[in-house]
Amino acid sequence: MLDPEVKPSPAREIAHRGKGCLAVVLALAVLVFGGYFVWDRTSTFLSGIGEVPDYPGPGKAAVTITIPEDSSLDGIGSVLLEDDVVKSSKAWDAAVRAEPRATSIQSGRYLMKTQMKAVDALNLLINPGESRVRAQFTVPEGLRLSAQVTALAKATKIKKSAYEKALDDPSSLGLPSYAKNRPEGFLFPDTYELTADATATSTLRQMVSQYKNVTDDIGLEAEAKKLGRSPYEVLIVASIIEREVNQNQYRAKVAQVLYNRLDAGMKLGLDSTVIYAENLKTNTTTPEDQASKSPYNTYRYQGLPPGPISAPGKAALEAAANPEQGDWLFFVTVNFKTGETKFASNEADFEKIRAEFQQYCRDNPGTCDS
Rank of each mutant, 00 (worst) to 15 (best):
T298R: 12
T298P: 11
T298L: 10
Y299T: 06
R300K: 14
R300V: 09
Y301C: 05
Y301N: 07
Q302M: 14
G303W: 07
G303H: 06
G303A: 08
L304K: 05
L304S: 02
L304R: 10
P305Q: 06
P305E: 03
P306G: 02
P306K: 13
G307F: 02
G307K: 02
P308D: 07
P308F: 03
P308Q: 11
P308E: 08
I309V: 13
I309C: 04
S310Y: 00
S310C: 01
S310P: 04
G313L: 05
G313P: 00
K314G: 10
A315D: 12
A316C: 07
L317E: 01
L317F: 03
L317R: 07
L317M: 14
A319M: 04
A320G: 01
A321K: 08
N322D: 08
P323E: 03
P323T: 08
P323Y: 00
P323A: 04
E324Y: 13
E324T: 11
Q325T: 08
Q325G: 06
G326N: 15
D327H: 09
W328N: 11
W328P: 05
W328T: 11
W328C: 05
W328S: 07
L329C: 07
F330N: 03
F331D: 01
V332S: 04
V332I: 04
V334Q: 12
V334D: 12
N335R: 11
F336K: 14
F336W: 10
F336A: 11
K337V: 10
T338S: 15
T338K: 15
G339R: 13
E340G: 14
E340S: 15
T341L: 03
T341M: 04
A344W: 00
A344F: 00
A344L: 05
A344M: 13
S345L: 11
E347A: 15
E347P: 10
E347D: 15
A348F: 14
A348E: 15
A348L: 14
D349T: 09
D349R: 09
E351R: 14
E351W: 12
K352A: 11
K352Y: 02
K352M: 08
I353Q: 13
A355P: 04
A355W: 07
A355E: 07
A355T: 05
